[in-house]
Design a binder for these strands. Structure first.
Lengths: 180, 180
DNA sequence: TTGAGCATGTAATGGGTTACATGATTGG
DNA sequence: CCAATCATGTAACCCATTACATGCTCAA
């Protein structure tokens, strides 16, 4: 049982979903390809944490819809109580920033502009999701017992993070402009 | 040649160092264990990107001090010009936040308190490094051509990130307090 | 003398990406 | 008819962690 497994249990606990759907839901918060998700779902099913029903669709290919079992729910709650492992960040930009003294101004600017653009895109995505969430439901989900509260704080986390990175990039590019 | 390899080249390009030392320097920005670093250094040496001299020490065990070759420098500068791969974040807390509706208030608070404490520790570390950098040198390193400029913006990045995470945790815990 | 930090390595295993494969359905 | 999206899977490979292994030096 690794972190991704609990992540999948957490998603399924809220809404029974297909592997494909889980992949899409997970993308913004935990990068995982379908080639990792499908075998893991099969394993979780074999071990009794999940069960699935084959759902026939007329407009689309059939799918396996997974839902959580009692065993899965117990495992999920136990995991929630455990201390979280430290976050891992792997950002190539950080290593490049360390080598900035080797780059000319043009190259340096390109590096940070690229990142800033990427962050702005991501920020837009997070804000779109937040808007969707707050208009679909009745305003800001402020009740921690409701599933959408999790969505809300997560999306806020993502948006904050992107804003902060954008500010950092602006700050660095400002310093670069002022170089003698 | 993976990202870690370029990270090592970047560190060595600035100051010839031992594997042990590189491991320590890299920790705050790219998590890598010695078991990954030592074989990679050996490979980079065999392929001509690095070279090493065995340095005898009286007070400590002998060490291999790696320095960059011309081939290594060329590869490093080429890498700098390439677009950076998107950052990957793997944060278990994020997945737990999604399941917050399954947790009671005590558990929810524990999760965020733990993270906040961790961030505060990290922030302290980054700020200590910044202080060291700005007192050792002549004030804030504002010249992008100088290696310490990279240090400065990187440490600022780390500190920013921790502050932002702390604010987010405070914000969430505030919402939790207000629960009916 | 024993534990902590310095120093280097290998082996086994687990996590994650890329590539290979297949096939349905819909809209342009 | 062709590209895009939905849908599921496997195999090979690379990246990263954990565990195994050794040995030096210094300070408590």
């Amino acid at each position: 049982m690794n972190t991704l497994a609990y992540g999948l249990l957490g998603l399924v606990a809220r809404t029974p979903s297909s592997g494909y759907d889980l992949m899409l839901q997970l993308q913004p918060f935990w990068q995982a390809k379908h080639s990792q998700i499908y075998p893991l779902l099969a394993k979780l099913e074999q071990e009794g944490y999940l069960e699935f029903t084959r759902v026939h669709q007329t407009d689309r290919p059939d799918k396996k819809v997974y839902s959580i079992t009692e065993k899965g729910q117990i495992a999920l709650k136990l995991w929630l109580g455990q201390p979280a492992v430290e976050p891992v960040v792997r950002d190539e930009l950080v290593l490049k920033a360390y080598c900035l003294w080797l780059a000319d101004e043009k190259m340096a600017n390109a590096i940070f502009t690229e990142r800033m653009d990427h962050c702005k895109e991501q920020l837009q995505m997070y804000e779109d999701y937040i808007k969707e969430l707050t208009t679909e439901g009745e305003g800001v989900p402020d009740h921690p017992d409701h599933p959408s509260f999790g969505d809300y704080i997560l999306l806020s986390w993502g948006a904050r993070r992107m804003k902060d990175d954008i500010h950092w990039c602006e700050w660095v590019m400002d310093l670069l402009k002022k170089r003698a």
